[in-house]
Write a protein that binds this DNA or RNA. Structure first.
Lengths: 149, 149
DNA sequence: TTAAATAGGACTAAAATAGTACTCATTGAA
DNA sequence: TTCAATGAGTACTATTTTAGTCCTATTTAA
């Protein structure tokens, strides 16, 4: 199904909430209450996002989390990367170590092509795009020729 | 990691072999020998591909499998779809039933946008592209601006 | 010093995936 | 007409991945 993990989905929910008041510091507990995601899970996600420098954290009492930069500069790719590791469709794309497909691996280079295209797509969409309230019509148009493929 | 399942990867290995002699009928056992993938697994994959009309099967002695159409007309999207079901990044994209993110679901519509873009990408690449022996240089170029995002 | 936070890691449970096995249906050829 | 080769369909088991929780340490404001 080529799907994102639940945690990545949660991450966007959390981030979109944080976009709304970017200047405020948000504690994990507060975010948990607002989003309805269990607090330990929220913490786990926030920690991963800090590690990937999508968020900045402030420790100690009255501490919390902040966006590390403007929403326009946080790509969907970086969020997915933070939660799930490198974006790679196949094992071979991620690393060539212990690649056992002796006879099949000729084709593997080709996944790189698809992988790169998807990566470009994910890097072209930012958090700011994700929270826009209205869809831009042109974005969802599909070339009619696709329907006959 | 946004990855494809192993079976999908195997499927492309199998299909790329079949592209090489498209007119020949290939038995599951033969394919297993050539690719090194265990025979029951090969059968499982072939059955799924037939069900999705990517392959055509001929039953009985001297039976086997054939590509259902020219490699140019078999998209990567259709292969992924055959192996993993509908391409949808989030549960919500796949179906809106039992969507529990009451407060978070405003953002969910936005995944549709990303999802559609990825779908377009996967539909623009065919099996024929996957087996091309040489990389087209322009395909792997990245706009330099990406590096500073 | 204490309370409220984050950091980091370990652990458990649940879900998805991979892989196997078994039985039935079809077909070509002896 | 029977047998052997082959695909169809389904159910099951094992493995791996993911989700979710918990515990302990560290930091900092009051």
């Amino acid at each position: 199904m080529l799907k994102l993990s639940k945690l990545t989905d949660y991450a966007t929910v959390i981030l979109s909430y944080m976009v709304k008041d970017q200047t405020d510091l948000h504690a994990a507990q507060e975010i948990s209450k607002v989003t309805g995601i269990a607090q330990p899970t929220v913490s786990k996600i926030l920690k991963l996002l800090v590690k990937a420098r999508v968020l900045t954290s402030i420790r100690g009492a009255k501490g919390g989390y902040l966006l590390a930069r403007a929403p326009e500069r946080i790509t969907v790719a970086s969020v997915i990367n933070a939660m799930e590791g490198p974006i790679a469709l196949t094992e071979c794309s991620a690393s060539h170590k212990d690649c056992g497909h002796t006879s099949g691996c000729e084709i593997q280079g080709r996944w790189e092509l698809v992988n790169q295209k998807i990566l470009n797509t994910l890097e072209s969409v930012t958090l700011a795009d994700m929270v826009l309230p209205v869809k831009q019509p042109e974005e969802v148009l599909i070339p009619i020729s696709r329907l006959y493929k």
